[in-house]
Nucleic acid binder design. Structure first.
Lengths: 172, 172
DNA sequence: CGAAATTGCTTTAAGCCTAAAATGTTTCCG
DNA sequence: CGGAAACATTTTAGGCTTAAAGCAATTTCG
């Protein structure tokens, strides 16, 4: 091996400034496991919502957002909170207005803005579903100790921060 | 409070066999955080796959399954592994056969079964994408220490087991 | 002021996804 | 053997989802 490549390798191992074909198998496995957990739980919740209340998960999620905002939200707010595209929200809201769960009105002060709220019916139905939903989640996580839960919260917060930072780097 | 309700409450607190309106806010928050992390990372990966390779995430995932199975897989296998419905796989495979990435043939021994494999093109393209994909994941998780990763793996394994148990209870 | 950029939302085209019903195939067993 | 059950896949109907383009209203700033 040449003196030059010796030098480069030392830089690599000591400063980690250069990318040799490094091994990221652990992170990859972590990502797959994270995805598996989420998919598993999401599927379970989806199925139960459907069976018990004949409602879809996205509809439930949207109502959950609105339940915490008595004064309503704009479509953009909802879109950001739910981390879905704008166009997605448009259709979702359309169907929920149609079924009488949501009320939609154009803002007085800015005619671009649509403000949506839960109707009385929407709120009542959501509360009924949410109560049961909470027990499902509790059951799905039942084998975790309170300490496990705290620790997971902490590590996922760290994960979220890390991912956001990485996403920010890309957009920059 | 009556003697009867005293008795019931004692049973509740000591054996946890009965459900009083308990507080499961922590588990709920944990679930939302888990979902946020996954959605965030998934969206980031989806965007990068699209930008760099003009490929969708489901296509990538399907090819990833096949890359690890040189002898091919049946559609049912893929469906189970990917945790998606059978009908979903049918369409996904259709498009990947169409684009020349997959090879599909009916099993010799069981005419119900379709065996799919990566074509040479499919494998080459997947390997190219996977190499880059791995660096994205590493970057997204960059702020986690090796210890964090290990700990998350452990807790997510526990979470997965708990959720599977709960899902099993329901189907029973 | 008024053009340009931005913002909020909708539309479009394409693809993803599910649950349930339908189709064809194989296995099980009486 | 032969019908019932199980299995693998496809089809169907409906909804979800995205990226990108389009439209209208508002804000910015020369």
């Amino acid at each position: 091996m040449s003196a030059v490549s010796d030098c480069i390798n030392m830089l690599d191992s000591e400063t980690k400034a250069v990318e040799t074909p490094e091994d990221h198998a652990e992170e990859l496995r972590l990502w797959l496991r994270l995805l598996t957990c989420t998919t598993l739980i999401e599927g379970e919740v989806r199925g139960r919502l459907r069976q018990r209340f004949d409602v879809t998960l996205p509809r439930f999620d949207l109502m959950a957002q609105l339940d915490r905002a008595p004064d309503g939200m704009t479509l953009s707010d909802v879109s950001k909170r739910m981390m879905v595209s704008n166009g997605n929200v448009t259709g979702l809201v359309e169907r929920l207005v149609e079924s009488g769960h949501l009320d939609r009105r154009t803002s007085e002060t800015d005619r671009r803005v649509q403000v949506i709220r839960l109707t009385k019916l929407g709120r009542a139905e959501f509360r009924r579903m949410a109560a049961e939903h909470e027990t499902w989640i509790a059951d799905l996580f039942a084998d975790l100790t309170p300490k496990d839960v705290r620790e997971l919260m902490r590590l996922l917060a760290k994960t979220k921060a890390s991912a956001q930072k990485s996403a920010g780097r890309r957009r920059a």
